[in-house]
Computed example of a mutant assay.
Amino acid sequence: MVQSIIFDMDGTLFQTDKILELSLDDAFEKLRVMNQWSGATPIEKYREIMGVPLPKVWEALLPDHSMEIKEQTDAYFLERLIENIKDGKGALYPNVIEIFEYLTERDCSIYIASNGLTDYLAAIVDHYHLDDWVTETFSIQQIDTLDKGDLVRTIIEKYKINNGAVVGDRLSDINAAKDNGLLAVGCNFDFAQEEELAQADFVINDLIELKTVLFR
């Protein structure tokens, strides 16, 4: 029986798309005011790379801008994300709380491993009281490599996990599971890509399906 489950946050537990466009628009509007951007907000390009650490996001969206501008944009984007979370404009995916309660009843330990930044993750955890079920939330900021596999390894080593699964929507989550000898469960949600999910051990369309996938 699987004893520990490590969840991704964006696109897995939290419906990031509900605040993504709002926050990205805010960030690029600020760039327009500063005469650092013209044209539409590159929301589609961001959707293509959704799930990578934020420094890599700005490398992709603002390749010709200075590091100073990238850092300013990063900080403002994070600020807007957090405010939108606190304002209740985001949402968890269906059945997050139900599956957390189910897993807790089965004495499973729950963790979160995310490419999101610490303050951003804390805002989600606090707003939805996820600490009632989650043992600890880990951010990519906590490691130097910005590699999801290394982040998952940090959790495994800290909590001495030897039987577990990683649940996420992107290839980085699937690879993180396989690199660490854990079960890889792919979530066919908003940002998922078919060719990436094909590499998972199991694919689910709703988190409630973890009941059958993890406890056969």
Rank of each mutant, 00 (worst) to 15 (best):
T12L: 07
Q3A: 09
Q15K: 14
C108R: 00
R80G: 08
N175D: 12
V52R: 06
V203D: 03
I204W: 00
G39D: 06
D206A: 08
L31K: 08
L13Y: 04
A184P: 00
L13Q: 03
Q141I: 01
V185E: 05
A40H: 11
I204N: 08
L61W: 06
K70P: 02
L78W: 00
D144G: 00
Q36W: 09
M9S: 09
L121P: 05
S4C: 10
L117H: 13
D25E: 15
L20E: 08
D131M: 15
L81Y: 15
D17G: 06
K89T: 12
E105H: 04
C187W: 02
L22Q: 04
V167G: 09
D17F: 11
D107Y: 09
K18F: 13
L103I: 06
G88L: 07
Q3S: 08
L183Q: 06
D87F: 13
T104E: 12
I110L: 10
H129C: 05
D206Y: 05
Q72N: 15
D25G: 15
Q141W: 04
F189E: 00
D26M: 02
L54N: 00
I5G: 06
I6Q: 03
N188C: 12
N84T: 04
R32K: 13
M67F: 13
I82E: 01
E29T: 14
D74S: 13
W133P: 01
L214W: 01
L130N: 05
K158C: 04
I161E: 01
N205E: 14
D190Q: 10
S114R: 01
I43L: 14
K56H: 09
M9P: 00
T135K: 12
W37Y: 05
K86A: 08
L54D: 03
T145L: 09
E195T: 15
K211C: 10
N163G: 03
I156P: 01
V33F: 10
D150M: 06
L61M: 11
E98S: 13
F138N: 01
N180P: 10
E101P: 07
T73M: 08
W58C: 03
N205D: 15
I19L: 04
E196A: 05
L210W: 04
H127L: 14
P53W: 05
